[in-house]
Design a protein around this nucleic acid. Structure first.
Lengths: 334, 334
DNA sequence: GTGAAAGCGCTAACAA
DNA sequence: TTGTTAGCGCTTTCAC
């Protein structure tokens, strides 16, 4: 049978209460008694039952994390930051994704309602924000990782899409580019809309608004980058730059530009987004906006840990600066 | 205050035991009583406390998952499969990674010792296999996802590295290639060693052993692919193919071959491994071994669910067939 | 400083 | 079919 606190108490010749006190460092305990208890704990290999502790304390030491999925590379990066920070603050982490529709969210909500968590961390909640807000209370802190404005009063760490789009625009503007093509994301996906929106806003502010026909919706894929370039060329649209909302579509852009014999970066400068591993491996290597994703995840987790400890968290969205990694798709090598 | 089973019992005019019976479908209950209880449950919005249930039942409904990290794409894919399958079998999933050294494993072990899990799922346990084996018992089922032989009697789902290396070799052999360069992984990383090992074994069996000087250690990076090719050329090593142990290093190989003016696939055929998203976006598109990673994760999770339900799981490592995706880095287009 | 006792919220024997 | 009674293993008053 499993070793319980009763065994330890018996063997140490004290009450269960004393063992508990020693282990939790609460109340005064005689040094000798404490030492004896600790020795017995070690001898017996006693580890308090997480189940019993959480029932008695009313806290589980576990936070629920809801992510869109794990396969988008940026989310995996963020999650790694979350996992590391949660681990080092001593919390467990129950992971849920909502990639199989409404079911997944219901499952998450079920655990929340069953009081399985001390806190919640939701990555890119988007349309589920109201539902999340509803299940949260003072006793159940939550932190969001999101670029959407409407956090409904919940603490949020931004994901750098908006400033990133602007950085890309400023880079191209500084290089003298005036007529960018824009490869966007699928309708309804905020992250892409934010990147693209801030990009076009920056160009407009500089006096070079991006015309509607220079905008191509995409779907995160390389194919959408290829299609955008070939459509623009077929349409006779003139361009001296391309901003693609992610690395994959930027790769497609480079591929098609190469195929059509448009030299990069001399003729066309290309900027991608994410800088996720293979950006350096395109031909030519891709200039891309790089977001400190792990740090974003870690920061959110740390904020949640603070909230769990009863501390205060920022009212305003927390932004973590990202950087533009300049490679040869915008600057001639040498 | 939170609604408890006592509130429901009081309001429905029955005992707590009856409420429990109705909710868990155990024992016989009068249809009318059951209906009344259910109505009250709904009215009050009662959800049983996960903490109390797990203490009383002796089971948590949660499995512990230990992964190397989330940032390697293949692991993220596997994890997604695990998450989906676990969710649909109604289990929670506590995630741990061991990317910050021994600490992380200790943290995981701590939760295991605290009886926080009903079962364990360990991805690429490698050197931690003995430690994992030690904490497992009949009451704590475990499933490994690993290509290593030594599962120490624990059920295991293979990750397709060995058959994948062989598939790559057979493809190149069928194309008449006889002198492949091999870009391996870092020493001590089994997955790379397994891919490369089965590749070279297949070539040797076909009568074309790969000489030692055609083998280049790598580190998963594109740079290692570039270095391998330029070293081989500098050494005067002749080759008509390259097998890279992952897509990233294969991209580097393509890059350097292009840089050196060696046409692909006419002069050199290149095969990568993983087929993780950007393989189709290299120039030329990369032929790569594709492993059904989500399915691998899902299968392991299903096996664990079976074990949790008291069922039997296979003794032998479960292998899930992977496929070779042929693109233009080995076959001339058209 | 330490022990006894009363929970935390639920499930499971055992009676009735 | 249903209620009563013990737990599950720990924490936490409240006395002493």
């Amino acid at each position: 049978m499993r070793v319980t606190i009763a065994h330890v108490a018996l063997r140490a010749g004290v009450s269960k209460a004393t063992v508990s006190r020693v282990l939790n460092g609460k109340g005064e305990t005689d040094a000798a008694t404490a030492a004896r208890v600790r020795r017995v704990v070690k001898e017996l290999g006693y580890v308090p039952s997480a189940r019993a502790v959480s029932l008695a304390k009313g806290r589980t030491g576990v936070v629920g994390v809801l992510a869109p999925n794990l396969t988008r590379p940026w989310i995996a990066q963020v999650m790694q930051g979350v996992v590391d920070a949660m681990a080092s603050s001593g919390h467990g982490l129950m992971l849920f994704t909502r990639n199989v529709g409404d079911d997944s969210f219901q499952r998450f909500a079920g655990h929340v309602n069953a009081n399985a968590f001390d806190g919640l961390l939701v990555i890119e909640p988007e349309e589920t924000v109201p539902a999340v807000a509803k299940m949260v209370s003072a006793a159940l802190p939550v932190v969001l990782i999101s670029d959407r404005e409407a956090g409904m009063g919940m603490p949020v760490v931004a994901t750098g899409n908006r400033p990133g789009g602007r950085q890309a625009a400023e880079h191209l503007l500084a290089l003298g580019r005036r007529r960018p093509l824009v490869v966007g994301g699928p309708d309804g996906y905020d992250c892409a809309a934010e990147r693209v929106g801030s990009f076009t806003a920056a160009f407009a502010e500089a006096g070079f608004p991006v015309p509607a026909h220079a905008f191509f919706p995409g779907d995160y894929s390389g194919e959408s980058g290829r299609v955008a370039v070939s459509s623009a060329v077929a349409d006779g649209t003139e361009f001296d730059a391309v901003f693609a909302h992610n690395d994959l579509s930027a790769s497609g852009v480079l591929q098609m530009l190469g195929h059509l014999g448009r030299p990069v970066p001399v003729d066309v400068a290309v900027v991608g987004f994410d800088d996720a591993g293979h950006a350096a491996l395109t031909a030519p290597p891709l200039t891309a906006v790089h977001r400190p994703l792990r740090e974003i995840g870690a920061e959110a987790a740390r904020m949640l840990a603070v909230a769990l400890a009863g501390g205060a968290v920022p009212d305003e969205p927390v932004e973590i600066a990202n950087d533009l990694v300049v490679r040869n798709s915008t600057i001639v090598p040498g």
